[in-house]
Design a protein around this nucleic acid. Structure first.
Length: 295
DNA sequence: GCCCAGGTGAAGC
DNA sequence: GCTTCACATGGG
């Protein structure tokens, strides 16, 4: 159980092994982290946060002394024992390769609203573009939050109420295109109490997924992202273009496999932490593609 | 110019 | 049921 040690004022140190901050914060789960050398700056809820890899863990800096760091440990999931998770993965060549390249990659535990809204904005967008859309959305509709002296202004993710009150044209000015109508409709459903963001927490996976699928602009892939990254369902398995490519190339090379077969394989092959395995495959595919491109 | 991007919903077989 | 297409916008 890694202790959270109050350091000098606003600094905390999380003692944690096998935590690759860069892989975790850049792997397309969350879209608001910005790298400055070794330092990562982001916003969690209404907290400005700085994270830096340290010997034996992560050094965090926040604005207010009274914050005990539990919310941050929860977000970062620092108490998850990675060896236990990796030990449940199937022992096959694709997973071994992904773990060899990505060890230390973690799943975060995010706020459901921010996660849901962000992934509604993600469809057929590159991660770099999703980041830009979310940044514009926060700057224009999010509340300013406290930052340390000398730091750039920071904004909370906009509330459902605030986005429900925006026009579709205003949202489109954040470069989200046709996704604006979906975002606005879902913001209104939440703001008006027609959709309860807490309900998926207390439901079994299939029922929680059915709730999310009622929302416009939310299909199987986005629902699984929110179930995995925000609600913490460990077997939710989002299949996007990268993961589909991983499954086809790594498990069924040079074979024509029906989509239904691929879906069944994804649902049964990867074990009790299938969502974690999915994130390893996703990051592995993107990293090896980027290496070939030299980026 | 072209193809693609952490897809979805609607229309067409 | 499954396949095809439109939907905005920007990167490579």
């Amino acid at each position: 159980m890694p202790a959270t040690l109050p350091d000098s004022g606003r600094r905390f140190c999380f003692a944690v092994r096998d935590y690759d901050l860069a892989a975790t914060l850049s792997s397309g789960q969350a879209f608001r982290w910005e790298r400055h050398g070794e330092q990562w700056l982001g916003v969690i809820g209404r907290h400005w946060v700085s994270l830096v890899p340290a010997a034996g863990g992560i050094t965090a800096e926040v604005v207010h002394v009274e914050h005990d760091g539990h919310w941050l440990a929860d977000y970062l999931q620092t108490e998850v024992d990675l060896d236990t998770v990796l030990g449940t993965f199937p022992d096959d060549a694709p997973v071994r390769a992904a773990v060899a390249v990505c060890r230390g990659l973690r799943l975060l535990r995010q706020d459901p609203w921010e996660c849901l809204a962000s992934f509604i904005l993600s469809s057929t967008k590159q991660i770099v573009q999703i980041r830009q859309i979310v940044r514009l959305l926060c700057e224009r509709f999010g509340e300013a939050i406290a930052t340390p002296p000398g730091q750039a202004p920071a904004f909370a993710f906009p509330t459902p109420d605030r986005l429900a009150g925006a026009t579709e044209a205003e949202l489109r000015q954040c470069k989200m295109g046709f996704r604006a109508s979906y975002l606005r409709a879902v913001a209104r459903a939440v703001a008006e109490g027609r959709f309860d963001l807490e309900s998926p927490r207390v439901l079994p996976l299939a029922a929680a997924r059915d709730e999310l699928l009622k929302l416009p602009g939310v299909g199987a892939k986005i629902a699984n992202c929110v179930l995995l990254f925000a609600y913490g369902f460990p077997t939710a398995f989002p299949v996007d273009v990268w993961v589909a490519k991983a499954l086809r190339q790594l498990y069924f090379p040079r074979r024509r496999v029906p989509a239904a077969r691929l879906k069944r394989f994804a649902e049964t092959h990867f074990g009790p932490h299938a969502g974690y395995a999915q994130q390893y495959l996703f990051h592995y595919m993107r990293r090896t593609a980027n290496l070939r491109n030299g980026t």
